[in-house]
């Protein structure tokens, strides 16, 4: 496998959810409407790379992760995993692909079956794919649990006996045991206490280094992303508005939305002077997104052209993409 081939190539991915009209709506002849959860997202992800997707709630970042793993059916677009078309894969092919693509969910409480012991939960992937003998599997479970900082004597406990942070470690162990090539981390720390967040983040980071894992790391908070990612993609209303290396993004954001997000990161130094950009209004409805640039109603540098023309997602600097008519001009 050459290093030049990306692990994941996503091209113009779209996902729409139909909005139910209801019986009355259908009788009245109301138009069929849909929520454009993802509206043309493209990116690539190389081996051993961590790409973070950030944005407010409802911007489509979680749906992007789920659509890539085909937990949601994409409306259109293409997802290539090591050159294999994920969205068109048949049953057996898809099962093989699922072995290499894992997900860690946001909610560590809901993602564990309350009736199944932790050991069984962690071993489940191996069992489904028929890997190893029962004895091998037990051995692997113990190894992986140790890797994520749990004790192997805890394998026969049930999920309700663990804390949130421990459960998230179990979630990570379940992904890790498959030796995946890609892990989609869907806001893995946002349901945890702040004190636990850093522990789990450090664990993810260490595992990534140790095993050379590739993460698609979804978060709604740039401060979380700052520590773990190589590149960052910022999403707004189903579209990617900026994509660049982490250094470039934090040093010189090109999109006003990114700048606003960065200004919202809490600064532990109380004497530091900083300019805080507070966005006005709420995220507009994705059923009926604004014309032109989707960010223009909340943007402080918006001009006439932003209302009328949708900015293209272009490479403004080397390796630094943005979708803004006035990129970096603030």
């Amino acid at each position: 496998m050459s290093d030049t081939q990306p692990v994941l190539e996503v091209t113009d991915l779209q996902k729409r959810f139909a909005v139910p009209r209801g019986v009355l709506g259908a009788l009245r002849g109301a138009p069929r409407r849909s929520v454009r959860a993802i509206d043309g997202v493209s990116f690539t992800l190389g081996h051993g790379e961590v790409l973070a997707l950030v944005g407010e709630s409802g911007c489509g970042k979680t749906t992007t992760g789920r659509t890539i793993l085909r937990l949601e059916q994409a409306t259109s677009g293409e997802v290539l995993f090591e050159g294999k078309d994920v969205l068109k894969a048949g049953g057996r092919q898809m099962k093989a692909l699922r072995r290499d693509m894992q997900i860690v969910f946001q909610d560590p409480y809901a993602s564990l079956d309350p009736r199944i012991t932790v050991g069984e939960s962690v071993a489940e992937g191996l069992l489904i794919h028929g890997i190893g003998t029962p004895k091998d599997r037990q051995e692997r479970v113990r190894e992986v649990l140790a890797k994520v900082g749990l004790h192997s004597s805890q394998v026969n406990r049930f999920p309700h006996e663990f804390s949130g942070g421990q459960r998230q470690r179990i979630g990570i162990a379940r992904a890790l045991i498959m030796e995946p090539k890609l892990i989609v981390c869907d806001e893995p720390v946002s349901a945890l206490d702040v004190s636990i967040q850093s522990q789990v983040l450090n664990l993810l980071k260490n595992l990534q280094r140790e095993f050379g894992l590739t993460y698609l790391f979804i978060a709604h908070n740039l401060s979380v992303v700052e520590h773990i990612s190589d590149r960052v993609g910022v999403m707004y209303l189903g579209k990617m508005v900026e994509l660049s290396s982490r250094e470039d993004l934090f040093r010189e954001p090109l999109h006003p939305y990114t700048k606003a997000l960065i200004s919202a990161i809490p600064n532990p130094d109380p004497t530091a002077r900083r300019e805080r950009i507070v966005l006005q209004g709420d995220v507009p409805s994705p059923i009926n997104p604004p014309s032109g640039c989707r960010f223009h109603p909340r943007c402080w540098i918006a001009r006439e052209v932003c209302r009328e023309q949708e900015p293209a997602f272009e490479e403004k600097r080397k390796g630094h993409w943005a979708a803004c008519h006035f990129a970096g001009q603030f």
Binding site: Q102, E124, I128, R174
Partner: peptide, 9 residues
């Protein structure tokens, strides 16, 4: 956990 089981194949 049902979604996860599907995700794992």
């Amino acid at each position: 956990f049902v979604t996860r089981a599907r995700a794992i194949g």
